[in-house]
Amino acid sequence: MSEYQYYEFQALDRPLSREEQEQLRAVSTRARITATSFTNTYNWGDLSGNPRSMVERYFDAHLYVTNWGTHRLMLRLPKQTLDLPAVRPYRLDHHVDAWTTRTHLVLDLTSEDEGGDWIEGADDSLAALIGVRDELATGDLRPLYLAWLSALAAWELEDDDEEEYQTCPEPPVPAGLGELTAPQHALADFLRVDADLLAVAAQASPTAPKEPLRPTKKELAPLIAALPQQEKDALLLRLALGPEPQLRTDLLYRLRGMTAPIAAPGDRSAAHLLDAAHALRTSLGSVQNRSGPKPVADA
């Protein structure tokens, strides 16, 4: 099988200027570059630029897929919508990382599985995942918990130190782990989250609010009406001064306290979750074996 690497970057909050597109052309002469995207597939060679630097400077989302099992998703959000202290409990090893620039927080989520699946023709993958960014910006931390579960399973394969698992605490458990959104299902698949581990984790997850994470016009109207007059005037002034792509994100952040699911403090250890997932997997396997096809009796 030949080498396969797929790189995709998306600019969401603002389009790239012509000068920025020319700067990116210096990174790759073969890439497809538009005012909102940079995509390229490699069957030999590699991207000459640094994806981390490209996200910090130009892009709000990055997807990377290889045929040797690497799945990587990077997301850049304005710092006022998601801060580093909120992300810190979900960081684990090199699989879930986060850092800040002067204006943004960057998440770096990675799944490695050399013997696992890979996505040939991955150009639809980022479109399925991009909704996770808006969910995080409006206070839904389920994507972070899913990334932590993925990292936990990978950590178990890489490190057999039982004492570390016993002392590794569970991060805050967001509401609604048993009822994921479509982007969250896509993220769980992309990061290869173990279904049994997720089922065990969801047992301690509060019920998600009945309201959708993306409020409707009917739900937004009273929330906006309740904003202080001075704050509404400031938002309208920003709108009147010209295009500001981040304005919508800022407003959703301001309203998110009334629409975001809550998170309960995690009180289980990594070892508890891994053992419970193993027990569930074993019990399900036993049930399936007992309910399997019975031998046909001799005539």
Rank of each mutant, 00 (worst) to 15 (best):
V65M: 06
P174F: 02
L82C: 03
D233L: 15
P174L: 07
A263R: 01
L284E: 13
T70M: 07
D189I: 10
R88M: 11
A225D: 15
Y4R: 08
T181K: 03
R256A: 14
G178A: 05
L16Y: 02
D189Q: 13
A225L: 15
P78C: 03
A98D: 00
S2W: 14
D189K: 06
M54D: 07
E114K: 07
P212I: 10
L180S: 04
K232G: 04
L227I: 12
A270M: 05
D196E: 12
D233V: 11
D160L: 03
R72I: 02
S53D: 10
D123S: 13
D97F: 00
E135I: 05
I33Q: 01
A61G: 05
E120N: 14
Q288F: 07
N50A: 12
L280D: 04
G292F: 07
L47S: 09
V193N: 00
A240R: 11
L227D: 06
Q246M: 08
G257I: 11
R57K: 15
P245N: 09
S17M: 08
D196L: 01
V55Y: 04
R30W: 10
A35R: 11
A195I: 10
D46Y: 11
A221L: 15
R32N: 14
E3C: 04
T138I: 12
P172H: 06
L141M: 13
R57H: 11
R192K: 09
W148C: 01
S291Q: 07
A86L: 14
L109R: 02
I33Y: 02
A240Q: 14
